[in-house]
Design a protein around this nucleic acid. Structure first.
Lengths: 205, 205, 205, 205
DNA sequence: CATGAATGAGTATTCATTCAT
DNA sequence: AATGAATGAATACTCATTCAT
């Protein structure tokens, strides 16, 4: 029965555990991370970990929530400015921001991604999807000509799954065959051409 | 120390173990699959498993090699006919073939992918990359006008990582938000527009 | 080191803890009851519990003392009236009274008995024995003819151990094979016949 | 997934585990006995214990089965001779035999009983009940005059629960207030008088 | 060559007890 | 006095690996 962390100290401890969770998974992998690793990294005892989380799984869920929260916190504030850019530039801007987030704190998030944190945990990525859809809606209001054509769900599906994953994969590679900027450019251009190409088809078939 | 399986019977056993590995991971997950599961499914004893593989990790590596091998075996024979198609059709054809492979044998490969087999194992996907590059070279010989523009490595990088992963992700989803055909069409069109869009920029800037 | 609770408030707290102990054991079993359960049910903190009891074991001992005390408190006042009854009726009366005690407060004592509180704890039942012996002495003064024969200690030993336990066992059973009244009758008659039978043997050998 | 012990060695091991279970419970109590205790006493590793038993509970169940089996094995062969005795002598004979069983092997069964093995485990004592009922049926065939009166189920209920428990309790006591023989005599006489007393009431009311 | 019984280090989780606030 | 956060030893159970037969 995990305690509700109402006191200041308790909240600090909960945060420390989540941080330690990222560190532990980063160094030992999802399966290799033990509760003792996490507790030690958080500077507490195993028992204390279980004061705040009913089990290991709950720690992982909290980690996932934190990651999703941070990604959303990165994208959302950018929306107003993104809507005034061209597709390619908007995507490029967004990907660079997310890339920076993933590399923060010694690549903490990145290392977790490498170990597939999203495969075993009930990673609820729908909040990210929601933000991206909101971004699109805003974008369409400023660029109404795209409104006719884009299959919103397909576009977002490919963007979030293909785009994000490719980005993560690249950030994780030790000797990537292409540079990060080249990759981001490639993804941005691809999406832009996709949209414009489909639009062209519609306009003069 | 495992022997090199030179005899016929030994080779059969090794194959059975690898097959059993896929089955075990498919039903119990990467972390849940035990050597006993694998040995039992392979119809041998645990002891025998260790005659052919030094440890569990080696079995996983063999599984990975097999998967890569099968994917290559699926794509390679298609190359001659793919070179005569348009970009979108070629990609569509290829993705459908790979999708069929992943669903073979009761989704064996797919289930493994779901459990993140590629995240923990030193999955060496470069052979697949090589084949795709070969495919491109051949394609360029039949469509020389693309030769000028395409950043081969970036294109293939995005194609293999983003495309493949998106495909797997989709095949694994229980209630995908878009249909499989829509997804393949989306990916195919995207790549085609990407190529054609870049080409257009080059031709009349 | 727990203080001797001399103040009123302290005595109230001690009682609350003992009550909470019965409730905790009743709902979670002897092994399942935790100090946190007990403290929470008593409306205090774990720390406070240790102000009054050196450890969990001491709480259990206090619970045992309370139970024995209550049983004695149930039997003792009955003694004067029991001495005027026949053996069977006296036993029947006593067993019904004790049965009622065990079922008091939502079967609190009963549930504890079910969880074997008497097996692990140093249950000192001798005070009960003493009261039963006192009862017998009084009974003999009113029925002197039994004085010659009855092996007092054997009789009381069998009565307290066999009788009480059989009673508890029955009260705990979900689908007892015989009714409660039948059981009490059986026990009462058995003891009565025992006494009278032995007496008969003595009188006309 | 516990193995079926088909091989000779395995059967020996299973027996050793059950024996060790009795020893462990005898020295540490039901709650205090750990899987490691049991394994060590059985001269095997914890892992091996789990080869044959799915969990600790299963070991306890096997112990219970063994005890019930042994008690039945003690009583059943006596039935033919018991049927030719008087009630008191028959009960005395039976109780002595069971008492001897409980004291066998350094009081192994006895110590377990002290720790309440029967309270937590789903002790299925019905087989013992069945044997006692069989004994009664046989007895009645040789002593038909008792047939009219005895409430078989009540008699057996009191006999098995009250009688057996009182016996065990006594055997466990360090300084019993009465001797073992006195107790057995008391129980035997009590049952005999019970039967005869009830019979007398029926015959000349 | 094959077997499968045996191993024991390692995992998540619990809970009596302590002690700083 | 009272609190409740922190502790860490202890427990049941798993599973990759070994090795006697």
């Amino acid at each position: 029965m995990p305690r509700k962390p109402t006191q200041k100290r308790a909240i600090v401890t909960v945060d420390a555990i989540v941080e330690a969770g990222f560190m532990a998974v980063a160094s030992h992998g999802l399966a290799g991370a033990t509760t003792r690793h996490i507790a030690t990294l958080a500077g507490i005892s195993v028992g204390s970990l279980y004061e705040y989380f009913a089990n290991k799984e709950e720690v992982y869920e909290a980690m996932n929530r934190k990651l999703v929260e941070d990604i959303i916190g990165t994208i959302k504030p950018l929306i107003p400015s993104l809507t005034h850019m061209g597709i390619a530039e908007a995507i490029r801007t967004m990907l660079h921001a997310v890339g920076a987030l993933l590399r923060r704190d010694n690549n903490r998030y990145l290392q977790c991604a490498r170990h597939g944190i999203q495969s075993d945990i009930k990673a609820d990525l729908t909040p990210i999807n929601r933000v991206l859809i909101e971004l699109m809606m805003q974008y369409l209001m400023h660029h109404p000509r795209y409104a006719r054509l884009i299959n919103l769900s397909a576009f977002s599906y490919i963007a979030i799954n293909g785009g994000m994953f490719t980005l993560m994969k690249h950030l994780n590679e030790e000797n990537p065959s292409i540079s990060y900027d080249k990759l981001v450019d490639g993804l941005a251009n691809m999406m832009a051409h996709y949209a414009d190409g489909e639009l062209a088809l519609l306009e003069k078939p």
